[in-house]
């Protein structure tokens, strides 16, 4: 097991994410939707940074458990939590936020879940970490940090509010 990112590096990645989202925003109106779990915490931190910059930001949370494609293969069903999107999704320009982008399956599920709330004008993707190895045609618009990993590596992100500390560990399968 190796510690790939320390708390400082995670903070830097979150800031980079916020900066690139802010720069790309034409009118300063930004709608973030974080994917549970941990994508919601990344979104919340980006939300705070964008507020400091004076952007007009709204924040929602999406739980995608009911939209996963591996439901049958799980021994225990994922713990369900509510989604909370308090602004109208119709015609809004949404940035989905997740912690780690890997196969792209979570994003597929998140898009399905989001579209059951309405028809957004556009959807973009922001991820804290892009570790590669996509299985679906998904590409991020904003990335905090790109990590080179092997397909079988286990990448574990821990975040302050969810797990008590900021860290990223990579466990390699031999």
């Amino acid at each position: 097991m190796s510690l790939a990112l320390d708390p400082q590096a995670i903070s830097t990645a979150v800031s980079r994410l916020a900066d690139s989202i802010f720069e790309a925003s034409a009118d300063g109106n930004i709608d973030l939707v974080g994917i549970r779990s941990r994508g919601d915490e990344v979104a919340e931190r980006v939300f705070c940074l964008l507020k400091e910059k004076g952007a007009n930001v709204r924040l929602g949370v999406l739980d995608i458990s009911l939209y996963r494609d591996d439901f049958e293969h799980l021994h225990e069903n994922p713990k369900l939590q509510s989604s909370e999107i308090d602004f109208p999704v119709d015609n809004s320009h949404i940035i989905l936020v997740d912690d780690v982008l890997f196969t792209g399956r979570t994003i597929r599920a998140a898009l399905d879940a989001l579209f059951d709330y309405g028809r957004p004008g556009s959807v973009q993707l922001a991820v804290l970490i892009d570790r590669g190895h996509r299985e679906l045609p998904v590409a991020p618009n904003y990335v905090g940090k790109i990590l080179e990993t092997n397909r079988l590596d286990h990448v574990l992100v821990r975040l302050k509010n969810t797990d008590g500390e900021d860290a990223l560990e990579i466990t390699s399968k031999k």
């Binding site: 458990s65 939209y67 713990k79 369900l80 939590q81 989604s83 399905d112 879940a113 059951d116």
Partner: peptide
């Protein structure tokens, strides 16, 4: 009981069903 709550939240959406 906890798990029933997110299901109840679906009922106020225009699309009330999920693909689970």
């Amino acid at each position: 009981l906890d798990q029933a709550k997110p299901f109840k939240d679906l009922f106020t959406r225009s699309v009330k069903k999920v693909p689970a």
